[in-house]
Design a protein around this nucleic acid. Structure first.
Length: 220
DNA sequence: GGCCAGGTGTAAA
DNA sequence: TTTACACATGGC
């Protein structure tokens, strides 16, 4: 099966998931800056542990770009320890906080590709993180591709590709509408969390089980 | 006790 | 261009 050889269309997948799961109301953050911090924290880390880190940053009144930009490294580290890689992430969050005012201004002036380039220049901001910030903090029409999306794509469409291949595959088949892409990504995560690639072929809860390949396909 | 989680940067093959 | 590895805690 090739990328063009689609079983259920992404638009139909979107509709089914929205019907079954309902709106996911993402990203769980209060400000654009919090989106960016969460995006760093969630790298290779479960959202449960990110929540603990966010809560602690908030409790210590550190969860603003202004405060984090001048906070002591150990103060940040002690808050975010549950999210893992805490020394690395503390340094990167501090740098992010220092750059965020400039990024916010760029978001008003620049077009998507240019702003994306700026984000990618930040330490610790790779494609997924950059695209999450673009979509969930600044409302640009772009779809972040995470590990879940790779697995679901493998499962439903029977193929996997690199980051840009998957992003273009979905973006070219969905409306160029940030609210749709926002919801779509969130719904994929919800599906992935409940999904059955771990449970085997008997999974009854997955709304698109009939579209899935049998378990055991090579995952990327 | 082992494996993995909404990745990224660096260095070597 | 691809692959390997470090980074680290917490849940199951």
């Amino acid at each position: 099966m090739k990328p063009g050889d689609v079983r259920i269309k992404p638009t139909e997948l979107y509709s089914s998931l929205l019907t079954v799961f309902g709106p996911q109301d993402w990203w769980p953050a209060r400000t654009g800056f919090e989106v960016a911090v969460g995006a760093i924290l969630t790298q290779q880390t479960s959202w449960k542990n990110v929540e603990k880190a966010i809560r602690e940053l908030r409790r210590k009144k550190l969860l603003t770009a202004k405060k984090l930009a001048i906070a002591k490294q150990p103060a940040i580290e002690s808050c975010i320890r549950p999210a893992g890689f805490y020394k690395q992430k503390a340094r990167r969050i501090r740098l992010l906080a220092q750059e965020f005012p400039r990024i916010r201004e760029s978001a008003k002036k620049l077009k998507l590709p240019e702003l994306r380039t700026e984000l990618l220049e930040l330490d610790g901001v790779g494609k997924e993180t950059a695209d999450s910030v673009l979509l969930y903090a600044f409302d640009f029409p772009i779809l972040p591709i995470d590990a879940y999306t790779h697995r679901i794509t493998q499962r439903i469409y029977g193929f996997d590709g690199d980051y840009e291949e998957l992003r273009l595959f979905y973006e070219s088949r969905l409306p160029r509408d940030p609210s749709i892409l926002n919801e779509f990504h969130a719904l994929l995560v919800e599906l992935a969390k409940r999904n059955c690639w771990k449970k085997g072929p008997d999974c009854q809860s997955c709304p698109v089980m009939g579209e899935c390949k049998p378990a055991g396909s090579k995952l990327k």
